[in-house]
Amino acid sequence: MIQLKGIHRTFQVGDQEVHALNEINLNVSPGEYLSIMGPSGSGKSTLLNLLGLLDRPTSGTYLLNNQDVTVLSDFEQAKTRRNKIGFVFQFFQLLPRLTAQENVELPMMLDGIAPNERSQRATEVLDAMGLSDRRHHRPDQLSGGQRQRVAIARATIMEPAILLADEPTGNLDSKSGLDVIKILEQLNNKGLTLIIVTHDPEIGVRAKRHIHMIDGKIVESRTDTIAETKDSLPS
């Protein structure tokens, strides 16, 4: 599903050239559960942005469903993001002036879906997240865990193939962090490809496959078969 070949990404910082990604080769199959770990500045967020079509590689090819997406126009890329990719962020990124339901409806608004259908779909997804009674609350009236669940509802409302989570538990206490991870894993069990970026090893090892990055390179890629039944998440 995802095929990265010889991906490089360099940034110009002052007169220095920073090699954020250096010769990345990665294949991800549909329904995989993947964690990307590594210290700050190792390039894991850059990799995630690239996978989410928010950024373009300096060189290399990125095939998504056998289509080279690096050559797509801005317009096509935005459409692909809207329909194929969901994002979950560390700081939730909910619009503070909209209710939980309106936040969830936002991607559907951008897609021009009619209000009736929107409201029905948003209600279903929020119900599934256990937020039925929080639909008309604004983000500042919700707890951190609830906010992240609203954000996950928003990321999955368009039924994307891939969910990209950038430190999804980074701003949560361990209990709500574990809840969020479990929700993400449930979605993965239903066939959603899940890629989590984290610097927390306890979360990273829960994935069936982990990737370690240092200085823009993948230094270790391991597939784990016994990590499935872990239930506790020591902080």
């Binding site: 989410g52 928010l54 801005d74 993001r81 809207r82 936002l106 951008l110």
Partner: peptide, 16 residues
């Protein structure tokens, strides 16, 4: 600015 970034991530076109 973060809202603009979010809209971009959600697949908003520049025109939107």
């Amino acid at each position: 600015t973060p809202e603009v970034g979010l809209l971009g991530a959600l697949g908003a076109q520049r025109k939107q």
